[in-house]
Amino acid sequence: MNSPFVNSLVAAGPHPAVYEHLKLYEPLIGSWDFDWVGHNGNGTTWTVPGEWIFSWVLEGRAIQDNWICPSIELRSTGKYPTGQYGTTIRFYDKEEDCIKVVWVGAANPQVNLFRVTFIDNQIIQQEIAIGKKPSLSKWVIKDITSESFKWEALISENEGKEWQLTQEVFARRKD
């Protein structure tokens, strides 16, 4: 698609001013298929196939992804629930000297703001509470290779003292 909007959004690569801060996400650039696994509190799980697409955007000053679960080809089949269709933008906040992440889920309205740390080759995105929420989220990207990675979503009902795994993604490179 060649449109002014897409052309003004997508960047060919990173901007030199932020590359050192955002390069930890660079291995994720591209398209991925994944199996999403949801965890119920009673120990049962269910799996839905999805897709995840990452790109440099905004003059290369950010990395954006589109999260689609179930995948585009399966969304209208009725085989799976609506799931989620959303986007995440990762950018360097010079004033706070940290990477921030904003998630916007459109299919099931949701907004989260995270601050990033990189520990033991894991990208840990810890939620920054916005307003009054009953729980906090933490998203961890780990086991990153050129062909796969794992993503985990955890929640805490006690302000981060204990964490419970609620979702996992097992991603495989598509392109």
Score class of each variant (00 low, 15 high):
Ala62Tyr: 11
Ala106Trp: 04
Pro81Trp: 09
Gly30Val: 09
Arg173Gly: 04
Glu162Gln: 12
His15Cys: 08
Tyr80Pro: 04
Leu136Met: 13
Lys23Gly: 01
His21Cys: 08
Ala62Thr: 06
Ile89Leu: 15
Ala106Cys: 11
Gln126Lys: 14
Ser8Thr: 12
Val10Gly: 05
Pro14Asp: 03
Lys100Pro: 01
Ser137Phe: 13
Leu154Ile: 01
Gln126Ile: 08
Phe114Ile: 01
Glu157Asp: 14
Gly60Val: 11
Ala129Val: 14
Lys174Arg: 15
Lys79Gln: 14
Thr117Tyr: 08
Ser8Val: 01
Phe54Leu: 05
Glu20Trp: 07
Phe170Cys: 01
Trp46Arg: 11
Asn2Met: 08
Val111Trp: 05
Glu157Leu: 14
Glu152Pro: 00
Pro70Tyr: 08
Asp93Phe: 06
Gly13Tyr: 02
Pro49Lys: 09
Lys79Val: 01
Tyr85Val: 10
Asp143Gln: 13
Trp67Gln: 02
Lys23Val: 09
Val102Gln: 10
Lys132Thr: 15
Ser137Cys: 09
Gln167Phe: 06
Trp163Ala: 06
Glu152Met: 04
Val18Gly: 01
Ile72Asp: 12
Lys100Asp: 00
Cys69Leu: 11
Val111Asp: 01
His21Leu: 02
Pro16Met: 02
Phe34Arg: 04
Val48Trp: 12
Ser31Glu: 15
Tyr80Asp: 09
Val57Pro: 05
Asn66Asp: 10
Ser3Cys: 11
Asp35Leu: 14
Ser71Cys: 08
Gln167Pro: 00
Lys100Gly: 02
Asp175Tyr: 09
Gly60Cys: 10
Pro27Lys: 02
Tyr92Lys: 03
His39Phe: 10
Val104Thr: 11
Thr166Ala: 04
Ala11Leu: 11
Gln122His: 13
Lys94Ile: 07
Glu26Thr: 11
Thr117Trp: 13
Lys150Asn: 09
Lys23Thr: 06
Ile155Ala: 05
Glu95Trp: 00
Phe149Ser: 05
Lys142Ile: 04
Tyr19Trp: 06
Arg115Thr: 14
Trp46Tyr: 14
Trp139Leu: 11
Ala153Cys: 11
Lys174Ala: 07
Ile141Asn: 13
Ile63Trp: 10
His21Gln: 15
Gly83Ile: 05
Asp35Glu: 14
Glu26Val: 03
His15Ile: 07
Gln167Trp: 06
Glu152Trp: 00
Asn2Gln: 10
Val102Ile: 14
Gly41Pro: 02
Val102Lys: 09
Thr87Ala: 12
